[in-house]
Write a protein that binds this DNA or RNA. Sequence first.
DNA 1: CCAAAAGTGTTTCACTTACACCCATGA
DNA 2: TCATGGGTGTAAGTGAAACACTTTTGG
Lengths: 229, 229
Amino acid sequence: MSHSYEWPRPALTVDCVVFGAADERLEVLLVQRGEAPFKDSWALPGGFVHQDEALDVAARRELVEETGVDLSYMEQLYTFGTPGRDPRGRVVTVAWLALVRPGVHRLEPRTDARDAAWHPVADLPPLAFDHERILETARERLRGKLRYKPIGFELLPEVFTLTELQRLYEVVLERPLDKRNFRRKVLATKLLIDTGQRRTGVAHRAPSLYRFDRQRHAELERDGYLFEV
Amino acid sequence: MSHSYEWPRPALTVDCVVFGAADERLEVLLVQRGEAPFKDSWALPGGFVHQDEALDVAARRELVEETGVDLSYMEQLYTFGTPGRDPRGRVVTVAWLALVRPGVHRLEPRTDARDAAWHPVADLPPLAFDHERILETARERLRGKLRYKPIGFELLPEVFTLTELQRLYEVVLERPLDKRNFRRKVLATKLLIDTGQRRTGVAHRAPSLYRFDRQRHAELERDGYLFEV
DNA sequence: CCAAAAGTGTTTCACTTACACCCATGA
DNA sequence: TCATGGGTGTAAGTGAAACACTTTTGG
């Protein structure tokens, strides 16, 4: 093994697929590249891993540097390393899937990314490198995970209505859900706390506001439960 | 981004968690290290990624070099990159989960691995590096995946009995399953072909031999079906 | 004829699905 | 008073789980 240290090494990067929900659509955070290759193209935020930096730390750092967003959830997605995926040479990237709550997005492009912006996933520009493939992998993971882990809440504000939650699920799963069945099932998990508050100022009956019960979720998680919507 | 090319790069390796089933136990393939660090310790087979080598190719190559096994299934598991996980310096490893059929194991240690051997996962020696953590991640993935994807077949010979399949599920899931319910459910998937043959020479009624229908599986896969046991 | 595993159906219960109307509020 | 979404229950069907005995074969 040790002789291998002298070989040329692949470069290592991280890339983040950051999803947000707004206007009843699923959006993804992209940066416009300021340098070649793919200058002016949109790309996933990301960059090189520092020498003694954990991979998740690198992902968070690049994200803050390029966009300034504050994440509510992050998990490792997949590592992409097909030779030729970067025209500059051999670059292996560890991709991450992240979620942010609405409103928190203060977009502040800072370093080499000229611009950062939210794009609806249903209507995207061409992306740099193999980022379209990475994004597609992330969409599949999100769809799958949403069905058996309660991560949908990480895309909503701290308090939300049941209808907002249902809309989110419909957007991600790309199919309509029955209102009564959805409410029954999601309330049956006992993962929602009724805040007792209602959202006023709407031109219809004021809906109840709920909060996700992180503590109960942590307890259930220990025993290995299933969520299922 | 481009300035990053001058920075010191983390080294990149692959490691394989190879599961096999034998004697109604789940086993994992380990190699005994011939060099420091962790000389004489058991470790997952793996090694450095070559400059223009795809990650899965690297994983397969290391596996053949160190053990000579022939895989029936392989998927990317997770990428581990915590600083300090390798005492020699910064090493990031892309871990793979692989399955092999019984009997195919011609173990032939060839390069720097002094010895390769199967170990029951229920009774393992201490492992080098963070390989215990990697192995635990692989066990969880295998358990989860077995329940909704038909990968159990990749741990059995080409033809097998329903009881053998059930025992395998019981070993991996670590719980007993009801015989009648199991048979009904697994046959309902239409993923098994009755070969018409029976296993003779056993001291009880000769059991039917089945074969996994890869073609039908591929068809169902396209529509996105679920397996569930 | 004995031991050992193969093979086979039915009932019960829980959960999922489909479905339609009245209520509260602001404009 | 109208438009808009909030909120609620029941019946039918499907799928999961529990459960025991007969059959075949080799020794």
